[in-house]
Amino acid sequence: MNPQTIREGYNFAYLDEQTKRMIRRALLKAVAIPGYQVPFGGREMPMPYGWGTGGMQVTAAVIGENDCLKVIDQGADDTTNAVSIRAFFRDLTGVRTTEKTEEATLIQTRHRIPEKPLQAGQVLVYQVPIPEPLRFIEPSEVETRKMHALEDYGVMHIKLYEDIAQFGHIATAYAYPVLVNGRYVMDPSPIPKFDNPKMDNSPALQLFGAGREKRIYAIPPYTDVKSLDFEDHPFEVQRWEQCCAICGSDESFLDEVIMDDQGAHEFICSDTDYCRERMANLEVTA
């Protein structure tokens, strides 16, 4: 097999080897202490504006020649950002890329977990904007670290209490806080709470990178991930009255899309790969 060609003048996966080792050390620590935020010396990455670099740095640190990479943005493989990040890593690593969830060994994501259940051996890398779940109530970093150390998590339920008091139910729909391995409260990044149950006891390794705040955290395979709730207001995922307008799925996460100038709208799967595969199967059986 020919050695894979990468763009001249660049190191494999852009980052230099020393930086990658530094990030891998942080990752090992993160895996050893599930849900704990490990500080790391973040580097700059040439990223589309507004995407963030944390997930990219993690991907660059773990990607190997034999990986097959999938990149999703809000569930879609075909957004400008997803396409350009996929091209970036293909260019600088020569690895295979795919849009099929089951083919990927490494999935770089922002805002979603694929609908198709992940498998052992797969790695899911999340791009995280704000890693600290306690930040909303406690601006001091020194104090939040202490709160984590002492398992001082009473304030997390304040947020849920306020939701119920105000809306009659827990209205928090994204970045819904979880308790990892019965120990650390963690912000699962801005995924919809619809995806929270997928994190629980997943056979895949889940890695989280926050570039601006220079934090890495992880959920090792088969780890308990519990969404916080109240006994009389248990955790629930979003549900839709509609089915996907394309594939007809009634169990996927749906995006509302505007169809025309008259404001007509429909609901379609946010996970483009899932939707396409369902369509392909329907055509085969039809």
């Binding site: 304030v155 339920h157 304040i158 209490y161 306020e162 008091a165």
Partner: peptide, 26 residues
């Protein structure tokens, strides 16, 4: 905590010590 309701202020210690029933907190 000036940023959250009176009810949440009173309930915080109870939540911190494990109360997980909204109706009871209320």
């Amino acid at each position: 905590r000036m940023g959250v309701s009176a009810g949440a202020n009173i309930g915080e210690r109870l939540m911190a010590t494990g109360e997980r029933h909204y109706g009871n907190l209320r």
